[in-house]
């Protein structure tokens, strides 16, 4: 019969239309922003820097090795190394990023910085409502804006964060046993070395003030 196909199609539409009032499965949309779909755990959008403890500046895991800056495909990361050092999570003195900027208007959320980071210092956030009226600096995040606590990381990616914490704890334990064994032998040597380096710096500083 001519028109049978059309009627069949219309019946399908009608079934879905009426069905959407009865079953939730047929109603596929939600009224954003009043309603929100529960976020999926693996979701990622922009990177943030993880810190341990209460003080964000002291607890930053980043050691400014600049691997992420080099590997970033759209080159949206800018890092300046510090001159002095601070202890990292294993207690070893490390340099830290004096400046760490990410232009998230350039970032394409590819996660390569996270994968190449050997220190578990940079992870992906899930915050997506980031629009701003400041078009010059609003989306250029410095290290203070990027720093987020390990607790935040646990909140957004619990499974992944637990794995990372376990790995870091293992590394720390390994480093501690290694450090204990090496401590006795290195103590005397290190003392001698610091004495030797301290002397020339002093004389150099003295020379500067004379000139």
């Amino acid at each position: 019969m001519f028109g049978e196909g059309i009627l069949k199609g219309l019946a399908e539409t009608a079934r879905n239309f009426v069905g959407s009032f009865v079953s939730a499965e047929r109603l596929t949309t939600v009224q954003y922003p009043e309603e929100r779909i529960a976020p999926i755990e693996a979701t990622r959008d922009f990177p943030f820097l993880v810190y341990d403890g209460a003080d964000w500046e002291a607890g930053l895991r980043c050691v400014a090795c600049q691997i992420c800056e080099k590997e970033c495909p759209p080159k949206c990361i800018y890092i300046e190394k510090s001159v002095d050092k601070k202890p990292d999570y294993t207690g070893r003195p490390q340099i830290y990023p004096k400046r760490f900027d990410i232009d998230i208007s350039v970032c394409m959320s590819c996660q390569i910085c996270v994968e190449v980071c050997p220190f578990e210092a940079i992870k992906m956030d899930t915050e997506f409502e980031l629009s701003t009226t400041d078009r010059f600096g609003g989306l250029l995040y410095d290290r203070k804006e990027l720093a987020k606590s390990n607790e935040h990381y646990h909140k957004i990616h619990p499974t992944e964060a637990a794995e990372v914490d376990a790995r870091l704890a293992e590394e720390k334990a390994k480093a501690e046993t290694k450090a204990k064994a090496a401590a006795e032998a290195a103590a005397a040597k290190a003392a001698a070395a610091t004495a030797a380096t301290a002397a020339p710096t002093e004389s150099k500083a003295g020379g500067g003030s004379q000139a």
Partner: peptide
């Protein structure tokens, strides 16, 4: 059902 038999 929606499409293949559709005369249009």
């Amino acid at each position: 059902n929606l499409l293949t038999g559709n005369e249009i």
